[in-house]
């Protein structure tokens, strides 16, 4: 029972990350490979605020979300100057830089040892310390996230982003501010990733840089590609499916030493196979 609850909790958190990546990569066409870094910043901020008893959970989440909005806008600004392929390289550098900071800034992040003993989340003065309460919180957050994504995509803003993805110049010629729309998409993606970080930290009560490194960013991209780019269903299916993979692997009798490597291998193969044979993913549109 506990296993299913933590699976649902973790998957809900990753759905928020999937939405974030989908907004940025799938919809706005900003090919970022550093979303895990933003996720990490959210996690560290909430951990810091809760561990030092600066604020309670909700204000801490708000601070993390606002900070990640600003961070993501800053990080994606180069994408508004350099085009597609070059931005991947820039974003790659940003991810490496973030990993270096997470690992070496021992005072703020606990360095490679991570931060243990992060307090559980609380809502309106009530501590959510059981797994059931945590799953409710995370599934609730996921539903809110999905609702927000759905509302955004059916509004003129969603249509504008789709048009921008097809032809920026034509959107500008239609009198629209392309830059502003892209910055807004990056901001929304930042808010999703930051909130996911806060939930992740309070759920696991321990974080370390390995959850927010390049592998994690690529896992997020794989989730979006496998689930399906640019759709709500794709952002939900991808995380639920890929997070089940380690559990499936644990049923097969392989030594634990190669299990992690096998998982990475399968993620890689899935990413390549989907890009080649089913670019629209299970429930999406072509990336």
């Amino acid at each position: 029972m506990d296993f299913w609850l933590s699976y649902a909790t973790l998957a809900s958190i990753y759905v928020l990350l999937g939405l974030s990546t989908n907004l940025l990569v799938g919809i706005a066409g900003i090919f970022s490979v550093s979303q895990a870094a933003v996720f990490g910043v959210g996690a560290y901020i909430v951990s810091y605020l809760l561990m030092n008893e600066v604020t309670s959970f909700l204000p801490a989440m708000l601070v993390a979300a606002v900070f990640c909005v600003l961070l993501n806008v800053l990080v994606t600004l180069p994408a508004l100057r350099v085009s597609g392929d070059y931005f991947v390289v820039t974003s790659f550098g940003i991810q490496l830089l973030a990993t270096a900071i997470f690992t070496n800034w021992t005072f703020g992040t606990g360095g490679a040892n991570g931060l243990p003993g992060i307090p559980p989340a609380d809502l309106f003065g009530k501590t959510l310390d059981s797994t059931t309460q945590m799953v409710e919180l995370c599934v609730g957050a996921m539903i809110l996230g999905c609702l927000a994504f759905w509302l955004i995509m059916r509004a003129p803003f969603g249509r504008l982003l789709r048009a921008i993805r097809e032809d920026e110049l034509a959107v500008a010629a239609a009198g629209k501010n392309v830059l502003r729309a892209k910055v807004s998409a990056a901001a929304m993606a930042g808010a999703f990733a930051g909130s996911a970080g806060g939930l992740y930290a309070t759920f696991l009560s321990f974080i370390d840089p390995s959850s927010f490194d390049l592998d994690a960013s690529i896992l997020l991209l794989t989730m979006v590609v496998v689930g399906g780019a640019r759709t709500l269903a794709g952002s939900i299916i991808g995380p639920f499916l890929l997070l089940a993979l380690p559990q499936v692997l644990s049923l097969i009798d392989i030594p634990t030493t190669i299990a992690a490597a096998a998982r990475q291998l399968i993620y890689g193969v899935l990413l390549i196979a989907f890009m080649l044979f089913r670019p629209q993913g299970l429930a999406g549109e072509k990336l």
């Binding site: 803003f157 249509r159 504008l160 048009a163 097809e166 032809d167 239609a174 009198g175 998409a185």
Partner: peptide, 23 residues
């Protein structure tokens, strides 16, 4: 033109200052 959008949506996109263009 935005080939993956409908004819109607191509026109709607270009209408000035719409509510809901902000997330």
């Amino acid at each position: 033109l935005f080939v993956d959008l409908t004819a109607l949506d191509n026109v709607v996109v270009a209408l000035p200052s719409q509510t809901g263009e902000e997330p």
